[in-house]
């Protein structure tokens, strides 16, 4: 239990965050060496399709950073296996990124009380980055305070 400033209590600190930065070159290198095997193990078919175009590697790198940021947000223990494809990064029609979890990642999120993960991505100068955030476990009395 954690006390809030208003003196009410929450079951969890309330906000989970995660961030990651990823060199685009790492994706280029992995694609050069392992090609489709790398793609298939890390990115869902929908993610691969969404990244098609001249900025293919940059978009993949941003999604890789997103997956890592979400693994950090979920505080996945080292002994727990979460395939990268359990975390799918999509996009709204506006272009804003969305997060869809399946399998073990979805189970961990449910355990933590995470229902929605907000995500922001960027890439520039050979680097891609992501920040993920979620509000969790806030009791009604804490919200009313």
């Amino acid at each position: 239990m954690h006390s809030t400033r208003a003196g009410t209590t929450m079951e969890h600190p309330g906000v989970l965050i995660g961030c990651d930065i990823h060199p685009v070159f790492n994706v280029v290198e992995s694609l050069d060496i392992f090609g489709d095997r790398y793609l298939a193990r890390v990115f869902t078919p929908a993610e691969q399709a969404a990244c098609e175009g001249v900025a293919f590697a940059e978009r993949l790198a941003a999604r890789y950073a997103a997956k890592e940021s979400i693994l950090k947000l979920l505080k996945v223990p080292a002994e727990v296996a979460v395939p990268w494809t359990d975390i799918e990064i999509g996009a709204e029609t506006s272009g804003a990124p969305t997060v869809s979890l399946t399998g073990r990642a979805a189970e961990i999120a449910a355990t933590l009380g995470v229902s929605v993960i907000e995500l922001t991505l960027s890439h520039d100068a050979g680097l891609a980055m992501a920040v993920a955030a979620a509000v969790v476990g806030v009791k009604v009395e804490a919200l009313a305070a």
Partner: peptide, 8 residues
């Protein structure tokens, strides 16, 4: 990312 490459 290096661990992915090691795995493959």
């Amino acid at each position: 990312n290096a661990s992915v490459n090691v795995m493959l």
